[in-house]
């Protein structure tokens, strides 16, 4: 059996913990919980002029969840808030095989394509993305 769910790129992304921490001053914040494993992602966002200016996260979760939060932090700054808000749906579609892996600004999320066949783990990737979308929804 292959162990393709944890390529080095995902492990490195999780270990990078990019964006981990809090914003000062605080931004809009939302927390999402996984009912399956109890994982929790809190994402803080500061937006201005329709673009994300800063993003930070605190994740208590698995490698996939932490890697997704780090990927989110990589792409967030300068991205249109509407695009971040649409990200959960876009990545969910990729995981379900309904769309291609993203390219361009969101290419970092292509690393999660191998999660697609593991339906029980889709929520791990989406947890911080949903928190970001919910935080922006409070604007």
């Amino acid at each position: 059996m292959s162990d393709d769910l944890y390529p080095e790129a995902i492990l490195r992304l999780a270990q990078s913990a990019r964006g981990a921490g809090r914003l000062d001053p605080p931004g809009l914040s939302a927390t999402t919980d996984s009912p399956i494993c109890g994982d929790r992602a809190t994402v803080e966002v500061r937006a201005e002029g329709g673009k994300v200016r800063a993003l930070a996260h605190a994740v208590r979760g698995c490698v996939l969840c932490r890697a997704a939060a780090a990927a989110l932090a990589e792409v967030a700054e300068g991205t249109a808030t509407a695009e971040i808000a649409a990200l959960p749906g876009r990545i969910a579609a990729m995981l379900k095989g309904e769309s291609q892996a993203p390219s361009g600004r969101f290419a970092a999320f292509a690393v999660f394509a191998p999660v697609g066949p593991h339906r029980s783990r889709h929520g791990c990737v989406l947890l911080p993305l949903r928190a970001a979308a919910q935080a922006l929804d409070k604007a």
């Binding site: 059996m1 162990d3 393709d4 769910l5 494993c37 109890g38 994982d39």
Partner: peptide, 29 residues
Amino acid sequence: AHTHDICQMVDASHGVALRGGHHCAQPLA
């Protein structure tokens, strides 16, 4: 190490089916 990462890896590497998470016992955790 997160329990779901452990469970995923042991299944992939050795065909070992384990359960991870709070086991529907969050007050206990």
